[in-house]
Design a protein around this nucleic acid. Structure first.
Length: 492
RNA sequence: CGGGGUGUAGCGUAGCCCGGUAUCGCGCCUGCUUUGGGAGCAGGAGGUCGUCAGUUCGAAUCUGGCCACCCCGACCA
């Protein structure tokens, strides 16, 4: 073993970091808090982008691109939004460097080149987009405006972790404008459903849809909807958010439209986003001590074929069969890589592709040629079977689907097993420490109680689940009356 | 940003307390033998010891600044 991954049981966060680095997904860069996404990681992100982008377009959205920089005066227009992000903004103050007269060969910021107005590197794009929308929206005929952008944003975080929290991250942000409140609310929930659908059907990651409490709300939103997923270690991860922005940005940027009746009204807005954090969610949903596990629908390479042979002639014979099989699989829209490098031995390749999470591995040796078979191994269960060559394409097509649903079912089962109903504060604390996971408990609905619980236990209200079952109970903290349980957890 | 720790070849490390020729393993290169779960043997290359300054005849080693990373807090998608 030349590459060793710390076991989950020994140190979960070290395990996570090992997977990211050893599976060749990303690495720390020379820039504080920023990562380099390597080809294998980026290929998975591209698969996510493709699937999401199609879903956005299928729901009527189009892509556009807005600037990285936001003039400070625009940024501060929506007060709550500005306040919420102010503490973590990178700010451009100068536009030129010059050689240091005291230190030849070194550069300093040219004090002569100070910007009249500072530029904020976008932590999110509402400000610049709504400033732009002002010029685009005049009449109800211009609505709804349904735009998405794929972009990078910067949030100057104190502590960073690969994919889960980096100073710069990649994401998509949808920004829509509507004539009515109802329509905007409908859009907010539609996109939440898109995210939940993507998480479950592509990432094989079950999620809880819900609405955030006031204190966890996006700065500038009237309501924040979210999908919350439970990771293997029992900590929750917010995997996507969809915000109902009311008329806050329309008012801040004075975006009005003429109604059919000729009246002038502020438009209603939504914004919604998912980021490269989903990569972290993917890892912590399925991977094991042998490395990454990628659900087939997001795997850039779904099947890897490894030849086993003696000598050049052996490789030639095996390759003939392998190439034919590769084409057969590709005809079924399966992405296949044939790794015929002579520089690595089969055992090395097996371990390598396992580490990188390739869902299916096919080994073809000279013994198989004689028997008309191949050996097929699945990454999720680490099991192997010998399959007749003529059935391989249909077998693999079915196997990929099996792996996809097995991963989802396993994650769903785990989430269910790690979700607890508790009725007393003592139980609540005990559960958090001994059996981390989701906790459904009664809450009196006040921000004070929420804050106290957070202070004392580090657990937060992840969301109030949608279509939540209504039942009378007593708040675990204050003992006051409550009508429903909310979802608590310690979170990433 | 506060507390603690780390930084030596691509990776992991020894050496540091007590200043004087930089250790070992993996990986890499060449050749031969190998190839059904991370191959074996032989030979070889690779280092301004994170960085900048200071102390010293001499610094990986002592002192200070800076940078990055890890752990624990506060902040957060």
């Amino acid at each position: 073993m030349s590459k060793v991954i710390t076991s989950r049981e020994l140190d979960y966060s070290k395990w996570y970091n090992d997977i990211v680095v050893e599976a060749d997904m990303a690495d720390h860069s020379a820039v504080r808090g920023c990562m380099v996404i390597k080809p294998h990681g980026y290929a998975i992100w591209e698969k996510m982008q493709q699937a999401l982008d199609k879903m956005f377009k299928d729901t009527g959205h189009v892509n556009a691109y807005f600037p990285l920089f936001i003039p400070k005066s625009l940024f501060e227009a929506e007060e709550k939004n500005a306040e919420g992000f102010a503490k973590e903004c990178a700010v451009v103050t100068h536009y030129r460097l010059k050689t240091d007269p005291n230190n030849p060969g070194k550069l300093i910021v040219d004090p002569e080149a100070k910007l009249e107005e500072e530029l904020v590197v976008r932590p999110t794009s509402e400000a610049i987009i709504w400033n732009t929308y002002k010029g685009w929206i005049e009449s109800y005929r211009d609505l709804p405006l349904l735009i998405n952008q794929w972009a990078n944003v910067v949030r100057w975080e104190m502590r960073t972790r690969l994919f889960l929290r980096t100073a710069e991250f990649l994401w998509q942000e949808g920004h829509t404008a509507h004539a009515t409140k109802e329509e905007a609310l409908e859009e907010t929930k539609r996109m939440l459903d898109v995210y939940a659908n993507f998480a479950e059907n592509w990432m094989a990651m079950p999620v809880i849809k819900g609405v955030k409490t006031a204190s966890e709300r996006f700065a500038g939103a009237d309501d924040t909807y979210c999908i919350e997923a439970l990771m293997q270690d029992g900590k929750a991860l917010q995997a996507g958010t969809s915000h109902f922005l009311g008329q806050n940005f329309a008012k801040a940027f004075d975006v009005k439209f003429a109604t059919k009746e000729g009246k002038r009204e502020h438009v209603w807005a939504t914004s919604w986003g998912v980021s490269t954090r989903l990569m972290g969610a993917l890892i912590m949903s399925h991977s094991d001590n042998n490395g990454l596990v990628i659900p087939p629908r997001l795997a850039p390479t779904q099947v890897v074929m490894v030849p086993i042979y003696k000598g050049e002639d052996g490789l030639k014979k095996v390759s003939e069969v392998a190439h034919a099989l590769k084409e057969k699989l590709q005809a079924k829209n399966i992405s296949v890589k044939y790794d015929d490098r002579d520089s690595q031995r089969p055992g090395w390749k097996f371990a390598e592709y396992e580490l990188k999470g390739i869902p299916v591995r096919i080994a073809i040796g000279e013994r198989d040629l004689a028997n008309g078979t191949v050996e097929i191994a699945r990454r999720d269960l680490l099991s192997k079977e010998i399959i007749k060559l003529e059935y391989v394409d249909t077998y693999v097509a079915k196997l990929l689907e099996d792996i996809q649903s097995n991963l989802y079912n396993k994650a769903l089962e785990r989430t269910k097993c790690m979700t607890y109903k508790v009725d007393t504060y003592a139980d609540f604390k005990k559960t958090l420490d001994e059996k981390p996971g989701f906790i459904l408990a009664h809450w009196d609905g006040t921000a004070e109680t929420e804050e106290k619980i957070k202070e004392e236990t580090k657990a937060t209200i992840r969301c109030i689940p949608l279509n939540n079952e209504q039942e009378n109970g007593l708040c675990i903290y204050s003992g006051k009356h409550s009508t429903q349980r909310v979802l608590f957890a310690r979170a990433y």
